[in-house]
Design a protein around this nucleic acid. Sequence first.
DNA 1: TTGTAGGCGTTATCAC
DNA 2: GTGATAACGCCTACAA
Lengths: 392, 392
Amino acid sequence: MRAGRPRWASSSSTSRFRPTRASCGSPRCSTSRISSPPSTSDHRGRLEQQMTTTRQPGLVSVARHAGVSVGTVSNTINRPHLVAAETKARVRASIAALGYVPNRAAAALRRGSNPIIGLVIPDVMNAFYAAIVDAVVEAADRHRYAVSLCVSHDDPDRERRHFELLAEQRAAGALVVPVDADRSRLAQLRAFGTRLVLVDRRAEEAEGCSVAVDDVLGGYLAVSHLLQGQGNGVTIVNGHPAIPQCHDRREGARDALVEAGRNPDSLIEFVVATMNFAAGVEVARRIVAQDAPRRIFCINDQLALGVIEGLTAQGLRVPEDASVIGYGDLGLGASSRLSTVGQPKHEMGDEAVRKLLDELMDGESHVHTATVFPPHLIVRGTSSHAHDLTVA
Amino acid sequence: MRAGRPRWASSSSTSRFRPTRASCGSPRCSTSRISSPPSTSDHRGRLEQQMTTTRQPGLVSVARHAGVSVGTVSNTINRPHLVAAETKARVRASIAALGYVPNRAAAALRRGSNPIIGLVIPDVMNAFYAAIVDAVVEAADRHRYAVSLCVSHDDPDRERRHFELLAEQRAAGALVVPVDADRSRLAQLRAFGTRLVLVDRRAEEAEGCSVAVDDVLGGYLAVSHLLQGQGNGVTIVNGHPAIPQCHDRREGARDALVEAGRNPDSLIEFVVATMNFAAGVEVARRIVAQDAPRRIFCINDQLALGVIEGLTAQGLRVPEDASVIGYGDLGLGASSRLSTVGQPKHEMGDEAVRKLLDELMDGESHVHTATVFPPHLIVRGTSSHAHDLTVA
DNA sequence: TTGTAGGCGTTATCAC
DNA sequence: GTGATAACGCCTACAA
């Protein structure tokens, strides 16, 4: 089917233009008109409300068709156990025959709540959050909930706007990675009856359920692993310590040193502004120049890959001359040679949905819980068959 | 605030357990009870429908409070130009005073359509689709539409289930990367009145709008770039040619050879089953063993990074001894040294939303269009300040 | 086990 | 410009 598509060569003019962020009206991209829709038999003037054509069939149509009452049809759909088998069958047949599609908006209006789960994350391009989105969407689908996604980009306004949307939809609940520590917006949403589960953050006081990961333990695992190799001292390449993750992972690193009988202050720290590949390359230069320890814990994988690149460019061999460990298992998936600390992302998303649904179902008897998942060490590149290792 | 969190050391037992995919009931992750919610003042027995507490204020409450009719309140919200300035102000004050939140479910019921855009993609973890999600969510937010996300994982059932959901919600429209070539499901959804825009696929016949990227051009750009370097012949590391992207990019590669006055059949092809890092490493071995051309076009970035790794492991230097180019710009973001072909992902998502909204607004007069975006070459690693280059 | 009827909160069409 | 009022399609006591 795609064989019939026009070859680029046949319209080489398109290759002249590079898309910009401007509007697409300009000839920068080839836009072809497709036969204008021949007013597909659906020319209903907006004035004639009463059409002879059978509009979207509702419960009533189904009821008539099956020779039962609307209540029975509703019951067959929502509480099948209350309906006699034979009636049920007849109703179902009618539903299929008429192509009836229930109207959730009407149900939501009546019930006062909508089977929609809001999901607010800071960034979809980030593999960590993407994994959570994946898990949440899957779990929600299993329970026939819709997922209304919001990407906050750390903008409180966006977050608030999505909260309003959820409130207007009378969404059943929301899973949110809050933008900042200001919980007043969250409280506001909750006050409106929307159940909330915090993700990647601890819920405080008795405000609700939460799902998080133990970054202190993660830092500990990473540095404990480094300490098993040869060398002396440990270097940490960190982001700004005001970021909770950075703070916590460093704490864990210090714990590992303490456990090994060393002074936690012996940890040599390099702080970078942006935690990416380029910064890693740059830090590698400083590490070599200052002759810092060659057992290096990087706060994330991109930084780690950058450091390796930088070390290699300076003639050092990894892992012979230096040990590097990353964090997050987000770089190239399981394909690179980098050891790292993995986080149970899918489980987190899963558990968040579970908590929310539990709160929705149990209602009064629900007890808020805070689950903290332990990360795990992933050791790679030691043998030709790199594999995941779990360290107790 | 996070200072108060328990240190891992204080409950070292958690570090003993590694989460499995099983249920969270087991002691594998530390779950702490948070003070049980003291039945937050909200103990309304399900029998007493009539509560004395002012339920959620509706249009009527606002109307009463402002001393106007419901119609006027509705108008102040939806068609402010029809309302006198002074009345408008009074109504708005009442809305704020009562904390009124409009009920979208009711509006949707009445209007027959819901301001929700469905988005169906095969995979959120894939950076290409993640970028599209990001763009779509942002554009939808600008217009106050909600985005209902579905990740199909190439499963037609999931796709169908989400289509049903959208139909039940009376969603305004949907953006979809279809699972397969079978367009009957799409037709079904469309028949229900949901507007559809195809993403990363060409719409056929007059079925609707679509947004895609020109992979033939992308392959051409990549190989043209390789041909500018020294060496003779070109190697392509490809996925299965039944995948449209793989097929098209190879076509473009052949076009480039033709343009350079070479025989397109001189292209040496290695086909891999899974297009990841490990496969790249393996292919590199075969390339060296068979002495295939050292100008290598890889169908994606992961493969390319694997090939570089494999070549390096065999003692070759890149780019001195071999030129490698990837595709997609998805590897490490803009941070690696790999040249590649970039796709205007954000523009695609943006344009898809624009087409959908246009169809929604214009109604009858809407004309379906198919937009094909040109990819662009990204050359990296040539200087110490790697930067993006656009080639005309 | 099934039928009946009232109302959920909005929108839109009228008169005024 | 504003006020009444009739749907929209479904759920759920309650009656039969």
